[in-house]
Nucleic acid binder design. Structure first.
Length: 774
DNA sequence: CAGTGAGCGAGCTTCCGCTTGACTT
């Protein structure tokens, strides 16, 4: 029996620390928070100074009872959760739920996982900091009040099962407003002039590319300029060289890792975290949920050694980075390899690539600045006052660039700089060709998962552990979706001057296409404008920053937590009541026009299951016709024609096997209905134009596919079938399905075997509906 | 997995942050 019980947050950390502490110490993990407000109800007593009602989180009951037993046996319980607001609260909740005596409890924090740091922590125990705990309670209660009072308003006013909260609603707002900016954006064009010159140098005859720094607003001005250059001579009037140093980026935090993994490896925020978790559990990297750019002294020393032996002493420059992130709590190190001398690891390709990225970033962060020499060459035109500029870049000392270069989100990808040949002032350049190209101004970019995380972090909204969940929540609620827009083509002019003659052409470019960027849905747009209208305070981009300031003051003992909450709740709740009592329903209804056949009005609006079109009036004795919008349509952009087309479905196509065939459009796309059976159309089939013949073919194909899944079939009432399912073979009888024991070959099962299995096992219900929806 | 959508009313949904396994017809 151990004399000392140490409780940390993560089991992987428990394992490593266990190795440093002797036999007298048993190290266990709480797996994060063990207690929280109940999921079912508000659990905050408004009348009693916002007293929170906590209960043990259902999936933690086992670990709590184990910890309770071990704590009872131990002489001292060391609470070693992280040293931040949530960590302090975890320690307090543990002390409360485990019923620990004050004298028995010691609160410690490990700043580094080294023998020395751990010994130091054990030698400097303290009491739980109740101010910090109160700051966490304030945070928790505020989020609960906002979430559980706002969400029901949405159920009533917009659609059931929606949600709102301090973080998610602002994330949606960012995306909605960006889309509005893009929609309102009017591209303007200008003409960019570039030139190619020949030049004699000590290295022979070579080519120099130059650009006019200013642009022309009109085609006429651009052509006028080219005209002037037709018989000009070009001469270098100035060469300026200046050294520039470039410093490496700090080692990864959660947010920067997600951004770089997205840019360089094309990973989603979610998969980055999943892979990082695997690396962490395998002991390959330090903790992956962190907002700190700090590296331990141990890591710095290791980096110094690795860089020296791999590249030489002159490549070393260790640094202590300081975070500039709003609200950073810095309970952990930056993300780095556990062993910096391991430049590569075993594992699957994604693990190896992500590790490589983390290794390079950490190593580069401790390497020398790169030394770059930039050259700007000014070229005079004999017949014009404008000047061409040629830019060159030479790396004089690679420094950290030997290992790693951070990517940027800038999508333009222009202004490539090149290496210039040796040039002299006064030297003449010979024009090969000159080009005036029409350029369109760019609209603001749509957020990707990773750029949204960056924006949220900049605003101080959300925490490393929640970035990935936020992204998935706003998609699960169908506020935003990762969408592709095919884009359109547009023309642009290119006027070329070559050997004294003009060539004018019109080229085509695609614009406005996106892939995998976050686009708001109709629901997202409607909910956002509703919340912004009635709850500006909470929807304000700086709301979180403001309440964080309050939390900080609570942590410093300058404010009392429930008084702060009271001040917030009064006006907030009043607004909630006011909104609930208003008659406004948020359906986004829009009149598109009249149906030319019936003369009835055609509307689009948000229905119970998503956007719908409506033909006729709802307050009439004649019921209106409804039809759901297709996935690629939205209330915002659909026109009358497209809406009318929707009402042509469902339509009768003909008869087959004495029953009619109907083509319809359901929640999962177009389908054929025949005798209560549904058959999905292929992507290439259009429900509006599909022929009876094609429909029959599809039915035949689908029937064959069904048959192919049946391994064996036994007569009976109901018949028993062995079917090849998505997760392996199973037995189907009536409406129920049954798992086949692993040791049985499905091909050899007899009817008796099947009946025995059916008797002895409970039917496998399909999982809850919510779990299946993506 | 599927054809809804009015309106009635039952009973349900929901927040943010801390941590990992279950579980797979």
């Amino acid at each position: 029996m151990a004399k000392n019980l140490v409780i940390v947050e993560s089991p992987a950390k428990a394992k490593t620390i266990s190795g440093f502490l002797g036999k007298d110490f048993l190290v266990k993990s709480s797996f994060g928070h063990v207690r929280d407000l109940s999921k079912k109800n508000l659990s905050v007593n408004i009348e009693k100074d916002f007293l929170p009602h906590y209960e043990i989180t259902p999936d933690k009951t086992k670990i709590v009872s184990e910890l309770k037993r071990l704590a009872g046996e131990a002489e001292t319980v060391w609470l070693a959760s992280d040293e931040d607001r949530e960590g302090e609260a975890i320690s307090w909740h543990l002390a409360e739920t485990l019923h620990l005596d004050q004298e028995k409890v010691k609160r410690i924090a490990f700043h580094e996982i080294t023998r020395q740091a751990i010994a130091e922590a054990v030698n400097n125990p303290r009491r739980i900091n109740m101010n910090l705990v109160d700051a966490q309670q304030a945070r928790r209660v505020l989020d609960r009040l906002v979430g559980f009072e706002l969400s029901p308003i949405l159920w009533k006013k917009v659609k059931p099962a929606l949600s709102a909260g301090r973080v998610q609603s602002v994330a949606v707002r960012l995306i909605v407003e960006r889309e509005e900016e893009i929609k309102a954006f009017q591209a303007s064009t200008s003409y960019k002039v570039t030139a190619n010159f020949d030049v004699e140098t000590s290295q022979g005859r070579t080519n120099v590319q130059a650009e006019l720094p200013q642009r022309f607003d009109t085609r006429q001005e651009a052509v006028g300029f080219l005209e002037k250059c037709r018989n000009a001579t070009f001469r270098i009037s100035d060469i300026e060289t200046k050294p520039v140093t470039k410093a490496p980026a700090p080692p990864f935090t959660t947010s920067t890792l997600q951004q770089e993994a997205s840019r360089k490896l094309g990973l989603t925020v979610g998969s980055t975290m999943k892979v990082a978790q695997q690396l962490y559990e395998a002991g390959k990297i330090t903790y992956m949920r962190t907002d700190s750019v700090n590296l331990s002294s141990l890591a710095l020393a290791a980096a110094r050694d690795v860089i020296t032996s791999a590249f030489g002493k002159e490549y070393v420059k260790t640094r202590q980075y300081t975070t500039r992130t709003k609200g950073a709590q810095e309970a952990h190190e930056a993300i780095r390899p556990t062993y910096l001398d391991q430049s590569a690891i075993e594992g699957d390709p994604t693990e190896r690539k992500l590790y490589d990225l983390i290794w390079k970033r950490a190593i580069a962060s401790q390497m020398s600045d790169a030394l770059i020499e930039k050259t700007i060459v000014t070229i005079d035109i004999s017949t014009a006052t404008e000047k061409f500029i040629a830019r060159g870049e030479v790396i004089r000392f690679e420094g950290f660039l030997k290992v790693y270069m951070e990517s940027s989100d800038d999508e333009s990808g222009e202004d490539a700089t090149s290496i210039l040949p040796p040039l002299n002032v006064g030297q003449e350049l010979y024009l090969k060709d000159m080009c005036a190209t029409q350029k369109y101004s760019q609209p603001p970019f749509r957020y990707s998962e990773a750029t949204l995380v960056k924006k949220l972090e900049d605003l101080g909204i959300g925490r490393p552990s929640t970035y990935a969940p936020i992204i998935s929540t706003i998609q699960k609620r169908e506020y935003v979706e990762k969408g592709d827009k095919t884009g359109e083509w547009r023309n642009f002019d290119v006027i070329t001057l070559k050997k004294g003659t003009f060539l004018e052409e019109v080229r085509k470019e695609k614009f406005g296409f996106t892939k995998g960027k976050l686009i708001p849905t109709d629901i997202g747009t409607l909910v956002n404008s509703f919340l912004v209208k009635y709850f500006v305070n909470i929807m304000d981009y700086h709301f979180t920053a403001r309440v964080e300031k309050d939390f900080d003051e609570i942590a410093q003992g300058k404010k009392v937590w429930n008084e702060m909450i009271k001040k917030f709740y009064g006006p907030f709740h009043q607004q909630v009541e006011l909104t609930l009592n208003s008659n406004e329903k948020v359906k986004g209804e829009k009149l598109l026009g009249q149906d030319p056949v019936t003369g009835k009005n055609v509307y689009v609006k948000l229905g119970k299951y998503g956007p719908i079109a409506q033909l006729g009036e709802t307050n009439n004795s004649v019921k209106p016709k409804f039809s759901g919008l297709r996935k690629d349509q939205s209330i915002d952009t659909i026109n009358l024609e497209e809406a009318l087309a929707l009402f042509q479905l469902p339509r009768e196509l003909g008869e087959f096997e004495q029953s009619e065939i109907v083509i319809g459009l359901g929640r999962f796309g177009p389908y054929i209905k025949h005798r209560n059976n549904y058959y999905s159309l292929d992507k290439t089939d259009d429900p509006h134009t599909i022929t009876l013949e094609r429909a029959l073919t599809i039915i035949e194909i689908r029937r064959q596919e069904e048959k192919a899944k049946i391994i064996r079939e036994f007569d009976g009432n109901p018949p028993v079938r062995i079917i090849r399912g998505r997760f392996g073979p199973y037995i189907s009888s009536g409406k129920d399905n049954f798992k086949i024991p692993r040791d049985r070959e499905p091909e050899t099962l007899t009817l008796e075997d099947c009946l025995r299995i059916i008797q002895s096992t409970p039917p496998a219900r399909s999982p809850k509906k919510t779990g299946r929806k993506k």
